[in-house]
Nucleic acid binder design. Structure first.
Lengths: 144, 144
DNA sequence: TAATAATATTGTAATGATTATAATATTTAT
DNA sequence: ATAAATATTATAATCATTACAATATTATTA
């Protein structure tokens, strides 16, 4: 995403943050912009690496703080599909995820038949559902 | 589980390990026995704490090694439902899991309508499906 | 059985992601 | 403009897991 494109979005991004009761600081806008424009379900470190190339004083703690706030306020969803890394998804609409064990890419899966729509199971109150699929992605399967 | 009960099961436990091409060492039998008799989806540390009370020379690395082998050979399933802890389930039959955000307990959920039975999504080959539910368990909800 | 090879276990140190903390900088409200 | 609130930083701590090399145990073979 070009700097120009980012600039043109700033007003919109600020609106998003404000509507979630988050003060739109420069860093938070950068993180939000990155998430909006790189739909790869990045890790905190990926976000940090990308933004700190532009903002050399950026602290990784700020990225973590920002992502924690985003998560608490419902702007992002944490994806715990892999033991070794926490990933962030800017799309908080219910959907499943597929991780390729070969290339490591994480895909959105919008097929609704995968997602149970339940408020109750075995008498327990359900507030969150994660459906994580793993296997070999289309592309990697084609290479074999 | 009493020591007697454990003793009486040893032959059976050995059979399980051998049938999965795992040498039935004393430590491995202990870990397997613990998993069989404590269906709480324990962490590696919980297993270590319990067994090391009896076997004072036990190394935590051994517990990790053992769980890795069990996992590779398909005796246990790793549960990644919570960012901060990896849990182990001795029941490898397909089923969902529910974690209570209040008490932290992890429940098996055998309701089959929760589990999609798919070999393919969006052209990707599916080899593993995890369905993780979170919310307030029956018991904790009752207390409120 | 004794010698040898293979495997299992141990203890310690390393890794690496995340969090805690306290100081500083910035922003907002008065 | 000043004070209060909030955001950011740098550093250190945490903690689960893994790497590694040495030792112990078990299985195999002569």
């Amino acid at each position: 995403m070009s700097e120009k494109a980012y600039q043109s979005d700033v007003t919109e991004l600020k609106k998003i943050l404000r509507s979630h009761s988050i003060q739109p600081s420069h860093h938070r806008l950068q993180v939000l912009s990155y998430l909006k424009n790189h739909r790869v379900h990045p890790t905190a470190d990926m976000i940090y690496q990308h933004i700190s190339a532009k903002i050399h004083t950026l602290s990784k703690t700020t990225v973590y703080n920002t992502l924690k706030i985003f998560s608490e306020k419902g702007i992002v969803r944490e994806l715990n599909i892999d033991e070794h890394e926490l990933r962030y998804d800017i799309n908080v609409e219910p959907h499943a995820h597929f991780k390729c064990v070969k290339c490591g890419k994480l895909f959105d899966v919008f097929d609704k038949t995968l997602l149970p729509d339940r408020e109750m199971v075995d008498g327990h109150i359900v507030s969150k559902i994660d459906v994580y699929l793993q296997g070999t992605c289309k592309e990697c399967a084609g290479k074999e």
